[in-house]
Simulated assay, not measured.
Amino acid sequence: MSAYQKQVPMRIQARPGSKAEQGYFSKSGLPGLDWPMPRAIAPGIEPAPLEDLIFHGGKVVPRMEFQNVYLGGSDSWAHSDVEFIDAAIKHAMQHKQMNNVMQQYYPGARIECEMRASFILNKEKTSKLTEEEVQAQVVALLDSSLIDNRDLDTCLFNLLLPAGTILALQDLSSLDGLGGYHGSIHVSRGGRMSTLYYSANVFSENLSDGSENGIVSFDKSWKSIVGTLYHEVNEFRTDPDVNDAIEKNNNDFLGWSSRRGREVGDQPIFQAGANLSRVFKEISDPPRTVHLPVQLLYSNAVHGAEGPIARPHADTATPM
Rank of each mutant, 00 (worst) to 15 (best):
R262M: 09
G307R: 08
V279P: 06
E235P: 07
I309G: 02
E306C: 15
Y106W: 15
P293Y: 08
G23W: 15
L172M: 13
D75W: 10
N122L: 00
Y230G: 02
Y105L: 04
M102R: 14
L297K: 05
P36F: 02
H291F: 09
S208M: 11
Y4S: 01
P293K: 06
Q22K: 15
P31C: 15
R15S: 09
H313R: 15
Q271G: 01
R192Q: 11
N68T: 11
A92L: 01
E232S: 08
P62F: 11
I166P: 03
K220W: 13
Q7A: 12
L229M: 13
S184W: 00
P162F: 14
V134F: 13
N250M: 03
S144V: 03
L297C: 02
S194L: 13
V302R: 08
V61T: 07
S184V: 03
L276I: 02
G180E: 02
L207T: 00
N100V: 09
F253L: 04
S257Q: 06
I89Q: 00
G255R: 09
G255C: 08
E232R: 10
H79A: 14
K27V: 07
I269A: 04
T316D: 01
L178H: 07
E124R: 15
V187G: 03
G191I: 12
A78I: 04
I283R: 00
L229T: 04
I41K: 00
T316L: 02
G58I: 10
S74R: 14
A136D: 11
R260L: 11
H231G: 02
V202Y: 09
G179D: 06
N243L: 03
G190H: 13
N100K: 08
G190W: 15
D86F: 14
Q7P: 10
D176N: 12
Q271T: 06
I85A: 07
M320Q: 03
G265D: 05
E235R: 07
L50N: 08
R262A: 11
H231N: 06
D86I: 13
A317Y: 15
F157G: 06
Q67E: 09
Q67F: 14
I269G: 01
S284F: 09
Q22P: 01
S26W: 11
N275G: 00
D266K: 07
R278S: 02
N234Y: 05
D266N: 12
Q94N: 12
H186E: 10
L292H: 11
T154A: 05
G44S: 03
A314M: 14
F25A: 09
P287K: 00
P162Y: 14
W35Q: 05
P47T: 04
G73T: 07
N206L: 14
R116S: 03
H313K: 09
A317S: 15
A272M: 09
K123D: 04
V138W: 05
R15G: 00
P49N: 01
Q7V: 03
